[in-house]
Design a protein around this nucleic acid. Sequence first.
DNA 1: CGCTCATTTGAGGAACTTCAAGGTCAGTGG
DNA 2: CCACTGACCTTGAAGTTCCTCAAATGAGCG
Lengths: 239, 239
Amino acid sequence: MANLDFYSTPFVDFNHTKIFGTADTVAHFARVFGEDAPLQGTLSALQRGPVRFYRDNVIALDEDVVDYVMFVVSGVVRSCKICKNGTRSVVSFYLPGDLFGWTEPTLSLSIEAATDTEVLFIKRSGLLALASRDVRVANVLLTATTNELTRAQEHILLLGKSAKCRAATFLTDLWVRLGKAKYLDVSMSHQDIADYLGLTTETLSRSITALERSGLISRVASRRQLLLQNHFGLRRVMN
Amino acid sequence: MANLDFYSTPFVDFNHTKIFGTADTVAHFARVFGEDAPLQGTLSALQRGPVRFYRDNVIALDEDVVDYVMFVVSGVVRSCKICKNGTRSVVSFYLPGDLFGWTEPTLSLSIEAATDTEVLFIKRSGLLALASRDVRVANVLLTATTNELTRAQEHILLLGKSAKCRAATFLTDLWVRLGKAKYLDVSMSHQDIADYLGLTTETLSRSITALERSGLISRVASRRQLLLQNHFGLRRVMN
DNA sequence: CGCTCATTTGAGGAACTTCAAGGTCAGTGG
DNA sequence: CCACTGACCTTGAAGTTCCTCAAATGAGCG
C-alpha cells in the first residue's frame, strides 16, 4: 500500500521505483504553468519525484492521496475500482501532461500504472495556497478539473453506445489525446480498455476486428500498433 | 434557443417564465457561500433571476452558457444529449443547492427542466474575479467542480452494473441527496431516469417492480412516492 | 525451443431491448 | 358524479446484443 509520507524526502526509491532526472518534468510543467521562472521555483519546491512505477503497480489508493495531486510525466495511469463481485471498472486513463487527483476519496478508487510510468506528486495544500496568490495557477487548477469533468461526461455518453462505437471512439480519442501521430500505439492492455468501455475483452477484440475488416483501421507491426485509415468512416461508426 | 443576453436586464419574463422573489435564493446561497453580508451583496449583483422554467423546457444550450454558471433554487434540472440515432442520454441531474455549468461547451449538452424549476444565472467572469479576491469563493468553486466530478465518476461506475443494481443505487442516492426524508418523492419521469441509467423505461419499471416484490421498497400514495423499507437489503443489491 | 500470457475465435446462454398491448392516474367536460 | 382523454407506467413475448465458457492461436521472453 502506498504510504505517501515516503515522499516527504525527495529522491527515494519506492515500490521497485527508480528516480529520474527532472528535465522532462520541467518541460511538461512549462506547458501547463508557463515559463515563469520564479513560479517554476515555487512549484518545484512543492513537488516530489518524478517517481517511476512499473506496470500494474499501485501508485496510490484514493484515501492515501488527500494530501497530493498527481501529474503524469510519462506512461499511462489508470484510476479504477474493483467491486465486491470481482468485476473491475476503469474510471479514467491519465496521459502525460494530465494533472489529476481532485476527486473525493469517498469513492476509494485505486490509482495504478497501466504501463510503466513516471508520476510527479504535488502537495495539494501548497498548490491551493499558491492558487490563492496567483490567478494563473488558480485558472490552471479550475481548467484541470473542468477538463476532467468534461472527459468524465464524454465517458458517460460513450457507455450508452454499442460495442463497436465504443471501440471506435476510444481509439480515435486516444489518437487525438496522444497528439494525432501517424501510428497509434495502444500501450494499455485490452483488459484495461475493456474495463474502461464496460465490455469484456472478447467483445472488445471482436469489435476491433470488425473495424479492421471494414477497412477503418489496420494493424501495423505489433497488435498494439494501429493505423487509423478511414477517419470519415470511423466518425460515422462513432455516431 | 436560449439567448442569455436577456438576463442582462434583471426580472424579465422568458420562455413562459415567471419571476419569483429572492428570499429562497438567499437562503440557498447562504448554505454555499456563508452568511457574509458584503459578499452576499457582491454575489447578488452578479446573479440574474431566479427564473422559472416549466417541465421539459430548455433552460440553455451548452454553447449559450459559456458566460454563466447556474444554481438550482428549486426543482430538478437535467443535462442531456440527443444523439444522431435518436437515443437520448441524461448525463446529470442537478438538485436544489447545486451550482453547475463548468463543463466545456464542446459536448453541446442541453440543459433542461426535468420538473418545474427555478434557476439562478451567475456571471461566470464576475464569479471568477470574485474567487481570485476571496479564497472562500475560490474554494467553493473548486469544491463544486470536484463534487460534480465525483458524481460523474460514480455515474460511470454505476453504468457497469446490472439494471436492478442501477435502479436501487439511483433511488438510494436520490434519497440521500434530497436529505433522507421519510418518503422519497421521485419527481423526474421514468424516461429521464431510464436515460440517466442507460436503460429503457420498460427495464427500469421491471427493476423497480422487482425491488418492490423483494420488499426492499414500497409505493405509497402515488407511483412517484416511494418508501425505502430495507436499507440493508438495498445496500446488498447495490453491491 | 518451449514456456507463459494476451488475444482471438466459436458456440451457447443471459440480460436487456424492442414491439405491442393493457393498466393507472390526473385533468376535463358533460 | 362519471365517462373520456392523454400521458405515463407496467406487463408480456420475441429478438438482439453482449457475456460466459472453452479452446485455439499468436507474441514475447528466458
